[in-house]
């Protein structure tokens, strides 16, 4: 009796989440013996995967709250020009109004008399923009390098892996500071800088995926049909390599937001926009008397990043069923 069969049987029902489970369990119970061939229990087609995604997220209260928080932050960022049409850096009231003491400024004002809530609402837009741009760029560079290295192998792989390794060896945050100091800080350069330090991780991941997938039959078939390398990489292998990359992307957005906030806190952010990190940096001097100035924007960062990580966990459960450990 091949042991792999037994293992697959034992693990299989637990791997199929939520709705699909009942049907699978019934069919498993009907099986007369463990020697039966293992039917692929994880559906591969796109629509059922999407349905599974929704159903798993729906049954996971943590993922639901993560999604809700993220939706709220995104709405806040998108509607910031409507909610607070003026410049959030403008002085609107007397300084040091504590949160909850003035109905006109529910979260109070900072040391110059700028509205805290206006800053947090506008900061949401900045954080999310940097998070999304940086992740997009990082994925673009990382997946391209990883795909080429993994697909072609040989010397291409050796050279690209070495370059990746050099970038990965450089200490991330020092590198970030260097890049931002070279290019004047703006949302665009911050995103590029973050992408520069995050792509090596993506490259390693996609290299591994492409190395495995290029040996598969469907790639051989595509090759024998005379497809070009670019076509094979983009339309044949990439879709299969995507699930782990998507999971990484959600975590990358989270860490990009953290990096942006740290840079802005150090005074290396875009000076023309208000960001959560720069608000904390500005409030730092008044920690003794008005600690709410640091506490509130930091709380916003924490909630946003937490929401992204909760979603990342849920995505991991759905998209990487084999890597994920049964619950």
């Amino acid at each position: 009796m091949p042991p792999s069969n037994v293992r697959a049987l034992r693990l299989a029902p637990e791997r199929v989440p939520a709705e699909g489970r009942a049907a699978e369990i019934v069919s498993l119970a009907d099986w007369p013996s463990v020697e039966q061939p293992v039917v692929p229990l994880v559906p591969k087609s796109a629509p059922s995967r999407a349905r599974r995604l929704l159903s798993v997220i729906g049954h996971n209260p943590l993922a639901v709250s993560g999604g809700a928080i993220l939706l709220f932050v995104a709405l806040m960022g998108l509607t910031s020009p409507l909610l607070y049409p003026g410049d959030p850096l403008a002085i609107v009231a007397e300084p040091f109004i504590w949160p909850g003491t003035d109905a006109a400024h529910p979260l109070g004002t900072d040391s110059l008399g700028r509205d805290m809530l206006a800053g947090i609402v506008h900061g949401a837009a900045v954080s999310l923009q940097v998070g999304v741009f940086a992740t997009f760029l990082g994925l673009l560079i990382g997946v391209s390098v990883g795909a080429v290295a993994g697909y072609f192998g040989g010397w291409t792989d050796v050279v690209l892996s070495r370059v990746t390794e050099v970038f990965q060896t450089l200490p991330n945050f020092v590198m970030l500071v260097v890049v931002v100091a070279i290019a004047q800080p703006s949302i665009a350069t911050l995103s590029v800088a973050i992408a520069i330090v995050t792509w090596p991780g993506v490259a390693r991941l996609s290299r591994a995926e492409f190395r495995t997938l290029r040996e598969k039959d469907f790639v051989l078939a595509a090759r024998s049909l005379g497809f070009g390398h670019v076509r094979i990489i983009v339309s044949e292998i990439l879709p299969s390599a995507l699930p782990p990359i998507i999971v990484t992307a959600s975590v990358m957005v989270a860490s990009a937001i953290l990096m942006e906030s740290a840079l802005s806190f150090m005074g290396l952010g875009d000076p023309n926009v208000v960001s959560w990190g720069s608000m904390i940096g500005a409030g730092r001097e008044y920690l003794r008397t008005a600690w709410y100035m640091c506490a509130l924007p930091g709380f916003a960062i924490m909630l946003t990043v937490l929401a992204l990580n909760l979603l990342g966990d849920a995505l991991n459960e759905i998209l990487n069923p084999r890597r994920q450990v049964r619950r």
Partner: peptide, 18 residues
Amino acid sequence: SLIFYSVPAFWIGLMLIV
């Protein structure tokens, strides 16, 4: 642990000082 993972280190530093 997910909360620890999501907190900016410099912010928790400031809050610990407070």
